[in-house]
Amino acid sequence: MVSAQGSRESPAPGFPAQVVRLRGHDLSYVDTGSGSAILFIHGLLGSHDNWTHLLDRLDNAHRVLIPDLFGHGASAKPVGDYSLGSHAAILRDLVDQLGIPKVTLVGHSLGGGIAMQFCYLFPERVEALVLVASGGLGRTVSPLLRSATLPGAELVLPVIASTWVRERVEGVGKAVRGLGWRPSADASAAWKGFTSLSDGESRRAFLATTRGVIDPGGQTVSARGQLVTAEHLRTLVIWGTRDRMIPVGHAQRAREVFPEAEIVLFEGAGHFPHLEQPDRFAGVLEGFIHG
């Protein structure tokens, strides 16, 4: 069932992707190291690439799993269910397939919502939970994502994600970099995610996923009042103080679900604190896991 894959989207050097057949479709993932298992879950338009820079810090003491969710990266993009529950069930199938009894979940943005759904559905499989700029803790979300839920978005996306538009935006970016401007890790990650919408399968999966958790008014799925077993779950919440995708105020709301949660704010970071301040992120994560 599990074999090396000639990956369409290569992970970090020395960490080749593997592929497993789950529910009739190929799921691509990185699996390295040994010890207690950490399962990283990327956000909307993300992939394993959002996490692989942490591998050298973690895989000496832990088994690290980094899947590409269905609809993302090198994994299949089938027509079907892209709800939080479906994603969580697929990840449970992955750890079952690999014979892993329990995992520490680290979820970013959409991945945080999936991680909380995993806790709700499979609490006996969760060692601890880390939420990074997580969805599912309040209504507010970027107008950019809300716009993807509007009627006609499927007609607009092929135009704004077209090669013609991307080449011109990249040309402008190259010109301003020549003047000394450098994009932040936040901006680079967002742009890389946007460029993944160049093919129809990815756009369809993106719209299905987005519309499963967001409507024109904001986020539609909330963990508040749902995770009744969460008060005893060891939980860490990490957020950037300049997050423009999901406001940092949602970090404090996590305590309504996880009363004993540890909250760490990354001053000056945006929606991707693990990319913008990777050394601090790795240190905080290690301290929490071993604490």
Rank of each mutant, 00 (worst) to 15 (best):
D68L: 09
L91P: 04
A76V: 06
L98N: 07
Q97I: 09
G111I: 07
L110Y: 00
V79H: 09
H108G: 02
Q97F: 07
S109Y: 04
L69P: 04
L69T: 07
V79A: 14
Q97D: 11
K102D: 05
R92W: 05
G73F: 04
L84A: 02
A88M: 06
V79Q: 14
G107M: 03
S109G: 11
Y82C: 08
L105H: 03
V95A: 03
G85A: 13
P101S: 13
K102W: 00
D93P: 10
D81N: 14
L69Q: 09
G73Q: 06
Y82Q: 08
G112F: 01
H108Y: 01
H108M: 01
V95E: 00
G111A: 11
G80E: 11
G71L: 13
P101M: 03
A74P: 02
S109N: 08
G73E: 07
L91M: 13
D93Y: 10
V103H: 01
H72T: 07
G85M: 07
V79C: 06
A76M: 03
L69V: 06
V106D: 11
L105R: 04
L98V: 07
S86E: 14
G80M: 08
Y82S: 08
A88D: 05
S109H: 02
V95L: 09
P101E: 12
D93S: 13
L69C: 10
S75R: 01
R92G: 07
L91E: 06
I90P: 04
V95S: 04
Q97K: 09
Y82M: 08
L69Y: 00
T104Y: 00
A89E: 15
